[in-house]
Write a protein that binds this DNA or RNA. Structure first.
Lengths: 101, 101
DNA sequence: TCGACATGTAACTAATAGGTTACATATAAA
DNA sequence: TTTATATGTAACCTATTAGTTACATGTCGA
C-alpha cells in the first residue's frame, strides 16, 4: 500500500483500493492505521481525498534506534556475525554426530 | 521492550518480563513477534536465552523508504540477516521437535 | 436540479491478538 | 541426586481486528 502511494502521490482512496482484492472499506481501514502512524497524510480535493507518503516517522525511528549509529551498529553486526558463525559451527558438529550437549 | 533489550544486551527472558505487569508468557508472545521481525535476536546460554537488539531491519526500512539502496550495504545486511534467520530457524526447529536432518 | 462519482459510517461475522494458568523440559546449583 | 531456576508449550477466555454489505453524505459534471 505504501509502495503504491509513494509511486503515485495524490492517488485517491478508490484508485488505491482497486489494486487490492479486498473491499474498498477494508482498504480504508488499513489506511486509517497508516494515517494514525503518520506514514500517509491526506488532503481533501473536491470529492477526492488525495494520499501522500510521509517518510518522517521512519526517519524518526531510524534516528531514535540508530543514535551513535557507527559504533553501535558495528558492534551489533559483529555480534550477529558471531551468532551466525556459531550456528554454522554447531551445524557442522551436528552433521558429524548425534548432538551431545 | 526494545528499550530494555537495547539498554541491557544479553538480558534473559525472565528478567525482561519482570519489567512488565503482564505474565512472562505474554511477554514471550511479544518477543516472538519481535524476533520474527529480526528486531531481537537471541542465543541460548545454558538455561538462559540471551536477547539482543538488532537495528538492521530498521536500517533496511530506512534505506528503502528514504534513499536509494546502496548495493554494497544491501548485500551485506541481507547476507547477515539470512544467517541470523537460519540460526533462529534452526533454534526453533531444535526446540519444536527432534528434527534429524 | 439530477445523476454520477468519491468517500464515510454502521452493523455484522469470523479470525486473530492478548493475556492467563497449568504443566513440561532443560540446565545450573546445592 | 535433588532442588531451584529459566524457559517453552498447551489450552482456555476475552477483546480487538479484518473484512463484508448496505446505506448515507458530500462534491462534481451534465
Amino acid at each position: 500500500m505504501l509502495d503504491i502511494v509513494k509511486e503515485e502521490p495524490g492517488i485517491g482512496v478508490g484508485a488505491l483500493a482497486s489494486s487490492f482484492d479486498v473491499s474498498r472499506i477494508a482498504v480504508m481501514k488499513h489506511l486509517t492505521v497508516l494515517e494514525g502512524a503518520n506514514l500517509i497524510v491526506s488532503e481533501k480535493d473536491g470529492r477526492t481525498r488525495r494520499l501522500y507518503f510521509n517518510a518522517a516517522p521512519i526517519q524518526m525511528i531510524h534516528d531514535r534506534w540508530t543514535t551513535d549509529y557507527s559504533a553501535y551498529w558495528a558492534g551489533q553486526l559483529t555480534r550477529i556475525k558471531y551468532l551466525a558463525e556459531a550456528r554454522e559451527e554447531q551445524n557442522k558438529t551436528k552433521k558429524g554426530k548425534s548432538k551431545n550437549d
